[in-house]
Design a protein around this nucleic acid. Sequence first.
DNA 1: CCTAACATGTAAACTGTTACATGATTCC
DNA 2: GGAATCATGTAACAGTTTACATGTTAGG
Lengths: 194, 194
Amino acid sequence: VAEHNQIEPADLPIPAYVILGMLRLGARSGYDIKRIVDRSTRYLSAISHAQIYPLLKQLERAGLVRGRAEPRGKRRRRAYEITKDGEAVLRRWLRDEEDLVLDVRDVGLLKLFFADALDEPEVVELVRALRRRSERILGELRRESLPAAAVAAARGHRFPHLTLPFGTAMHEAWVEYCDTLEAELRTRPARTRA
Amino acid sequence: VAEHNQIEPADLPIPAYVILGMLRLGARSGYDIKRIVDRSTRYLSAISHAQIYPLLKQLERAGLVRGRAEPRGKRRRRAYEITKDGEAVLRRWLRDEEDLVLDVRDVGLLKLFFADALDEPEVVELVRALRRRSERILGELRRESLPAAAVAAARGHRFPHLTLPFGTAMHEAWVEYCDTLEAELRTRPARTRA
DNA sequence: CCTAACATGTAAACTGTTACATGATTCC
DNA sequence: GGAATCATGTAACAGTTTACATGTTAGG
């Protein structure tokens, strides 16, 4: 595969694979990729447009994507597609079971971990805020990610839709747990601040 | 609170609050903080020792922690405790419901999202790898986080132990979902690669 | 007319990790 | 004697975000 590449396609940054994957799922421009990521994989891999545009150029130099100017009226626009080499690199990465890193930064749950420093009513407020956060994310998943996944499904891509329940199940479990925790805090309040 | 601070304590980096919180829960040295984080909050907020040591110095300059040399034999060691100002800053942050950011980077789930690019047996392998990952994390939570939380509970801190079920529930839900997904892939295999 | 969305790009700042660097102590 | 653990630190690097920068088009 692609002996002529300047960049070793062995080890691309993760956002590069997101770009390749999104182009494969039908995204056309950098702006398009950003919009689709925000509506679909945001809660498992966010990406900013400041990363997307330079990466698209790098990927083009490496022969993994092909781009051409495709303005809409006087509004400039560059349309990309994934190449055969790009598909191969994407698939190689997808098959690699070494790199399945899960990196969570949850400030909300972190605060609950340290909540012994708070008074009882403040903890209840925190648990409720955490519950609202999950409710809000569930709403966004239903309003934005579900339709986006339906579009992909209509094009014959089933996994965006199959991946969604992971996210919803997680936040449904959290909403449930927040309720359990709040009930427990009511029935067994702390004596004093630990 | 603390008008004499050089550093505005209004907006510390998150690892600084982790350090304050861990000192409050009984951690003594930088090394200690690193060890406790690895055994407890790793899956919601990791931290490297290269961050801890410089931050401890900054926090000391800001009057939020107090440190003194406390060598063990000839092995140098600096022991810290949180100050009243430090407690106040920590509590102010814990009460702030604005900043409850959830930032997940899940390469495993991302690969599943793009799994239409794979062949059926490769997807099954991916789902199994994802299941193994959650099983491994569940094991670590039971072997490491649970005893660490029990130690905290014995000292009167109940929330490290109350926070744990969030993590276990999440990964139990994932194991279950991996099984469901694998079963579904067997009964309704894809016609051809999408 | 003005706001939102479309569309692309860069520079500076910031955050975080890995590697480098060093040394003591304990356990096998 | 050697490995693991205790213990602290810095420098270079990699990755990411925010802000700056610019211009078009559609809709209310």
